[in-house]
């Protein structure tokens, strides 16, 4: 890793994705912090350490988009078990079968068709179960 990557919170997050890890921050008070930033928005602590999510999450809300020129997909807001909320996406066979309250697994992979590695969601009872 370069020094520049360590200095950049965003680059550190992206580097961990390339290693297959969904990284988030934790403060000394036990608050999960996401997206990365230099302060805990809950308690104001600047003593933040990186942690790794195990990938268990629940769908807090979901909206399905059906573009004319590609397969439908569902954008979700997840409540990740470690205590933070983030946007993600279900595509492929799970694209339109998820509902609010469903348990999902977060998997670091690229969206079908390529692109950067992202923390995408898959139904826990889906193809990877």
């Amino acid at each position: 890793m370069s020094l520049a990557q360590e200095r950049s919170l965003d680059a550190t997050y992206r580097r961990r994705l390339t290693e297959g890890v969904l990284a988030f921050q934790q403060c000394g008070g036990g608050h999960a912090v996401f997206p990365p930033r230099p302060v805990c928005p809950t308690c104001g602590s600047r003593e933040l350490a990186w942690a790794e999510s195990a990938g268990d999450a629940t769908i807090y809300s979901a909206t399905t988009i059906s573009p004319r020129d590609q397969d439908p997909y569902t954008v979700v807001i997840l409540d990740v078990a470690e205590g933070f909320r983030m946007m993600s996406r279900l595509d492929g066979p799970d694209a339109t079968s998820a509902t609010i309250g469903d348990d999902v697994r977060v998997e670091v992979r690229a969206i079908a068709g390529g692109g950067d590695l992202l923390p995408l969601a898959a139904l826990s009872t889906g193809v990877d179960a």
């Binding site: 909206t63 988009i65 997909y73 954008v75 983030m86 946007m87 692109g115 995408l120």
Partner: peptide, 11 residues
């Protein structure tokens, strides 16, 4: 500033 939403394709 990098987005933690846009890559997932919300409209």
């Amino acid at each position: 500033v990098p987005s933690y939403e846009a890559p997932f394709g919300p409209r």
